[in-house]
Design a protein around this nucleic acid. Structure first.
Length: 595
RNA sequence: GGUCUCGUAGCUCAGCUGGAUAGAGCAGCAGCCUUCUAAGCUGCGGGUCGCAGGUUCGAGUCCUGCCGGGAUCACCA
């Protein structure tokens, strides 16, 4: 990496010229801003106390040191205290030739060290996936790929919350009003089918609560005492006791849900190396609670409930086991964390979970530490912001939930409509067209969501999400298709740009800025991994596509008569196309050859 | 109320560990297809970076306070 050499030289220059050792902080290298001439810039203000000279003079002296000692530095200019270094064309050309044919440019070989386990998706089995889950799934998948590209041994896992009161509600409603119907008999997708009964339960339950309050019962009392809630609780108890009939129905209805989820996952393009089910792991959590009691880390209250006192850490007491002995969320999560540690002995244990659970994960880590699990520090809560709609938050109660399948349908339709309106590719077969609409629709959706910093709350405006112009997935996909078109035509014409040593004596500004951007890809991938941020990749892909389009607009490729220039530009286009494809892959977005 | 978090153009978002005149897209207006895909390119207008202090040669970025939004503090998950 040339930056390293430049930084070292900078430090050495200060030492030789002013007799001062400086740290990396005062030798920070940065890209030269496009409005100035140069490639890399150092700021000399911090050195003035050593040089005892003006900023201009100091920069001038160091600049001279560079041109004298570093071959790659061709020239420099000084503006105020900024030293702008220009690297030689030979350097950029060398970088270009050495890297443009690398299969995995910008990516490191996947490692086989201690794995990084990343949990994402984590659905409940009582309702279909919605927009919030989509952000989670896209983030999880993309961060996994980004970590892989940085040489991590990544294991994707899913933790399905398949037990608890929520699924009992669906089961109960189906028993009462299902009339023996099934997804097969009705043709309704399994997860939707079960979700409908969950909604039905809620409706009937509310009716009961209203009846009770009208009779004068206190609202909280009514909520607790409504017969349906009582029945659901009884069912949960029976489930925990292993009641055969309840377990059978439970398995069947969960099966329907999984069939539905599979379809959605497949379409979304996510998958997992291992799937955990809470029904398999919650008992381990109870065992850990016992262990904590024996160690004196937890304590039991008079009513029999178990707690952990976190007041020394500035937090409250946390419940770990209800008075009736049933487990709560934290209990289960202690169990699943332990299990995952046992299974993988991971270097890092990443949870892709919304920021509404920040407190939960803080507590989880504290409790594990109290229990003496030194690996608690390897737990990373990849906390992402909520998705909001123009009218406000998604509320299932108010029917403002954006269903994942519906959303993908809409994106597909928009892709179809837009393509047809533009009158493109009527020669596509039905399968080809279908595939293209799928790629474009999903590309738009994924890019729209992933381009926003994961940590931030994001606004999902349906109007804007289906836009295919500007900073969008289809724009980048289009750029790729354009490049492939040029490449195809170049090959048809019999042009050859395969040489390992392409020459170009005068690189044009637009060519130069493209090369510089390509040069930044590897460090962008590293940065994205460090910050767990697909948005970093998305923004890069957009910049690259935009830069290419400017180049493409301004400079002819195929019609260039100078053979070496033509070959150089074809190679540059191909390198750019490959890098766009690579970056988009890290976002889970496929790029088409034609569109 | 405690803790955490966010506040950048009309709207949606960039702005890496502090660095030059704060950038894109959308929306609006005006141009560019007999030339490699116009899902593109170019130009114009639009900003007291919530407010006030502080640290620094230098603050959108760091610190403090205030204002405003959100999350959380459940025997829900």
């Amino acid at each position: 990496m040339i930056e390293k050499l430049l930084t070292e030289t900078f430090k050495q220059a200060v030492k030789d010229l002013y007799g001062q050792e400086i740290t990396g902080k005062s030798a920070a290298i940065q890209k030269t801003r496009p409005e100035f001439e140069g490639d890399f810039t150092f700021v000399v203000f911090p050195l003035l106390r050593f040089s005892k000279k003006s900023p201009e003079q100091t920069a001038e002296e160091i600049g001279n040191y560079f041109t004298k000692n570093v071959d790659e530095v061709e020239k420099f200019n000084v503006i105020k205290g900024f030293l702008n270094l220009s690297l030689s064309n030979a350097f950029w050309l060398d970088f270009f030739n050495k890297n443009r044919n690398k299969k995995d440019y910008g990516k490191k070989q996947p490692g086989n060290g201690d794995p990084v386990v990343i949990e994402y998706s984590s659905p409940n089995t009582n309702k279909p996936l919605h927009l919030g889950h989509i952000r989670n799934n896209l983030l999880g998948w993309s961060v996994s790929e980004i970590l892989k590209a940085n040489g991590e041994n990544v294991k994707k896992v899913n933790l399905v919350n398949d037990r608890g009161i929520h699924i009992c509600k669906s089961m109960l409603a189906w028993q009462k009003w299902g009339e023996g119907k099934t997804p097969q008999s009705t043709g309704v997708k399994g997860d939707k089918f079960v979700g409908d009964f969950y909604v039905l339960f809620d409706k009937k339950y509310k009716e009961q609560v209203n009846e009770l309050t009208e009779k004068g019962m206190d609202k909280d009392e009514a909520a607790k005492n409504a017969p349906l809630m009582q029945e659901a609780k009884t069912m949960l108890k029976k489930w925990e006791e292993g009641d055969e009939e309840v377990r059978k129905l439970w398995a069947e209805m969960n099966g329907w849900v999984y069939d539905g989820f599979d379809v959605t996952y497949e379409r979304l393009g996510v998958e997992f190396d291992k799937i955990y089910y809470e029904s398999d792991t919650y008992l381990l959590g109870k065992a850990i609670v016992e262990e904590g009691l024996e160690k004196g880390v937890f304590f039991r209250k008079e009513d029999g409930s178990v707690w952990c006192d976190l007041s020394d850490e500035g937090l409250d007491e946390k419940l770990l086991l209800r008075a009736d002995g049933t487990s709560v969320y934290m209990t289960q999560d202690l169990g699943t964390a332990q299990l995952r540690y046992n299974d993988f002995h991971p270097r890092e244990l990443i949870y892709v979970v919304g920021n509404e659970q920040n407190y939960h994960f803080e507590v989880l880590k504290l409790i594990l530490k109290k229990l003496g699990r030194d690996w608690a520090d390897s737990i990373i809560h990849l906390s992402y912001g909520m998705v909001e709609l123009p009218h406000g938050k998604m509320k299932s109660r108010e029917g403002t939930v954006v269903d994942a399948d519906d959303l993908m349908d809409e994106m597909y339709e928009t892709a179809k409509k837009t393509t047809e309106e533009l009158g493109k590719y009527n020669d596509f077969s039905e399968e080809e067209a279908d595939r293209l609409y799928h790629i474009l629709g999903l590309g738009a959706l994924k890019y729209f969501i992933l381009k926003v910093d994961p940590k931030k709350t994001m606004m999902f405006n349906p109007q804007e999400s289906i836009d295919f112009n500007g900073n969008t997935g289809p724009f980048i996909q289009y750029t790729h298709a354009r490049i492939r078109s040029v490449i195809r035509k170049g090959k048809e014409a019999g042009y050859d740009w395969s040489s390992e040593d392409l020459k170009n004596s005068d690189i044009l500004p637009k060519e130069k800025s493209l090369i510089k951007l390509l040069y930044e890809y590897p460090q962008t991938v590293e940065q994205a991994a460090k910050s767990f941020s697909p948005a970093t990749i998305a923004n890069y892909a957009y910049d690259l596509a935009r830069e290419f389009n400017q180049f493409y607009q301004e400079i002819t490729i195929l019609k260039e008569e100078d053979e070496s220039k033509r070959a150089f530009r074809l190679a540059l286009a191909e390198f750019t196309g490959n890098t766009i494809k690579s970056a988009m892959w890290l976002l889970g977005i496929v790029v088409p050859e034609r569109m």
